[in-house]
Amino acid sequence: MNDIRVDECACDGVGNAYRPWPARITSIQDLTEKEKLFELRLIDPEVREAFKFHAGQFAEISIFGVGEAPISISSAPSKQGFIELCVRNTGDVTGALHKKQCGDIVGLRGPLGRGFPFEQMKGNDILLVAGGLGIAPLKSLINHIHDERHEFGKVTIMYGAKNPGEVLFRHQFDMWKHREDFDLMLTVDESDDTWDGPVGVVTKLFDQVDVDPDCTYGAICGPPVMYKYVIEEMRKKNMDVDKIYMSFERRMKCGIGKCGHCGVGHQYACIDGPVFSYWEAMNLQEAI
């Protein structure tokens, strides 16, 4: 009998897309009580070399025996050889990951999905709006814009968190406050004595910005409830529906458009997204 084994079957030269690759944790930063920033390095040089990503894409992190979880990549594509993932301790896999130490090995699969249209955004002003953990995928875009800052016009970042303790990347953002090439606006819903910035929801910040709708791209990521209100503000500024981009969180399990869990409207978040334009999102039932 002619048995066929998976490792012998020709799969367009890409191998088994479900197979995670070992990656070493090279750094762990505590960001808040719930979130840590993990820096990973794929061990196999060929796999590492092949891991070329765009801002907005995600990876599946594997803790064998526990499972896989989709995590958006926070580092810039321009930072090669390492991948940063900002992970909230919220489920089985992320909980197990939070217990890992520097030097430990985890499984990694990716990059997956469709990211922000970085090349298309070049030459324009950029308005980024993040809520809570939504800063994680936008951080990749922010870092990439930072690395190629001369390619962009005005860059405005609005970031809202529940309270000062939940502001992610606070140290870096504090350092950026006085930079002239980034207009950084942080706000919290509830203030405390460590906070001297604005208080209120992120949409309040729109009063303070001028937007040139002819040359501004928007990028949004946050909790599901946030999108509608941010889009409303962007539309009030006359921004085009096809220049507003947003990243959706769905249950990406296989990450390659097979398992069906991340269905959003008639699309799959894992291969058609997770980044969609507002025009696309308007056409996705139950997306916003």
């Binding site: 048995d3 066929i4 084994r5 490792d7 594997s62």
Partner: peptide
């Protein structure tokens, strides 16, 4: 696939399909 938890390594990801 089969895996080894200690080094997060996949030890076997094959399937045998008989005719």
């Amino acid at each position: 696939m089969h895996f080894n938890c200690a080094d997060e390594e996949v030890t076997d990801d094959t399937v045998v399909a008989s005719p």
